[in-house]
């Protein structure tokens, strides 16, 4: 029996299977975030059922420094997106050594992002929202501010972690020569995921920290 190759057929959309698969996966992932974000929007905008539990102003809770730190974090994630497109461009050009370095920068960018977010979580849990660990501590504002914050940034942080691992796999594969200049598609698919994580962060940052 002749071995049939699994790949685009005679009639196709003209893109590799992997790219189409990643885009359809991103549809699904975007809708997961849409569920969280739309739920957040409803909780944010509805009138509080109990008096005095209005939504706090994020600028006051996080502090100007906190917002600026997160803005820096956004900037780092955007930078790591740029290094990712450079990595892809270098793979397309056939310069695997440079691509490897760009990918390394991308991974470091992702790790810095996770580090800053971990620092921020620690600060918020210990200093700003002490009621999380101490039920006796009284609260005079909307508890869902913390709840939606953790759900959204945590779910996004999980995606960043997966993306870092994904990029690390690509990086090691290039280092060991398993991905060559012919495998641009593979890096492009990894890049799609990474840019998607960045894109979602832009939305989460705006809706959670700024509005």
């Amino acid at each position: 029996m002749a071995e049939m190759v699994i790949g685009p057929g005679e009639e196709s959309f003209g893109v590799p299977n992997g790219k189409l698969g990643m885009w359809t996966f991103l549809v699904m992932d975007a809708m997961t975030f849409a569920g969280f974000l739309a739920g957040y929007a409803r909780l944010r905008w509805k009138d509080p059922l109990i008096e005095g539990t209005a939504w706090p102003n994020p600028y006051e809770t996080f502090g100007v420094f906190g917002i600026q730190l997160t803005a820096l974090n956004t900037f780092i994630l955007v930078c790591s997106s740029v290094t990712m497109v450079h990595a892809l461009a270098e793979v397309m050009r056939g310069n695997m050594k440079r691509a490897e370095n760009w990918l390394l920068f991308t991974i470091i960018g992702g790790l810095i992002f996770l580090g800053i977010q971990g620092f921020e979580w620690t600060h918020l849990i210990l200093d700003v929202w002490p009621y999380l660990f101490d039920p006796t501590h009284s609260v005079d504002y909307n508890l869902n501010f913390a709840a939606t914050f953790f759900a959204l940034t945590g779910f996004h942080g999980g995606h960043v972690s997966v993306g870092v691992i994904y990029n690390l796999v690509c990086y090691l594969a290039i280092r060991r020569g398993k991905l060559t200049a012919d495998d641009g598609d593979f890096i492009e698919v990894a890049g799609l995921y990474w840019h998607f994580v960045d894109l979602i962060w832009i939305l989460v940052f705006t809706f959670v920290y700024l509005i």
Partner: peptide, 23 residues
């Protein structure tokens, strides 16, 4: 389906950490 997943994750968080999550 992902919207159900997000709703179930929220419900699960609320069940597991009733002091923290009040979605």
């Amino acid at each position: 389906t992902p919207v159900l997943t997000s709703a179930l994750i929220m419900l699960n968080l609320e069940r597991l950490f009733p002091e923290t999550f009040y979605f």
